[in-house]
């Protein structure tokens, strides 16, 4: 049985404040998931993540792998009929994790050859999104 509300209302407030989005605006049409380029690898997919947040299952989403797969391409926010931008929510969720000093990416994880090949831009963006 799904136990509702983890009494983490503070976290909900943080998510809404940091993302500027209102979670209850989402009516679960799934257009974000339908258009998301990385949804195939996400767990949970964007619409499910918002649903879990609506149900108060904050930890489940914060501990998920899905939030790290958002590439900030903004297709979801662009097409959402209710003006809910999941990209911003994902950013907020990552920020909450990162501000708790839990880094997602370390240099050791990255292939050395790749470091010398790939454009700087990739690393700056990745460190912005993945590290504390």
């Amino acid at each position: 049985m799904l136990e509702l509300i983890e009494s983490l209302q503070e976290i909900k407030k943080d998510i809404e404040l940091l993302s500027g989005q209102t979670l209850s605006d989402c009516y679960q049409c799934g257009e974000c998931t339908a258009g998301c380029p990385t949804a195939f690898a996400m767990e949970p997919v964007p619409s499910q993540a918002i649903r879990l947040l609506q149900l108060g299952k904050f930890n489940e989403v914060l501990n998920s792998t899905g939030i790290w797969l958002c590439a900030s391409c903004n297709v979801c926010g662009e097409r959402c009929p209710r003006g809910v931008d999941y990209g911003k929510i994902a950013d907020a969720l990552r920020t909450i994790v990162l501000r708790n000093k839990l880094t997602h990416l370390t240099l050791e994880k990255i292939d050395k050859q790749f470091i010398s090949d790939a454009p700087q831009q990739a690393f700056i963006a990745a460190f912005r999104k993945y590290t504390t």
Partner: peptide
């Protein structure tokens, strides 16, 4: 689920939904 994108591929119409 709502459809996000529709495009052509050959003579098919591809629908991306969820």
């Amino acid at each position: 689920g709502k459809v996000s994108k529709i495009f052509e591929k050959g003579d098919k119409v591809i629908v991306w939904g969820a």
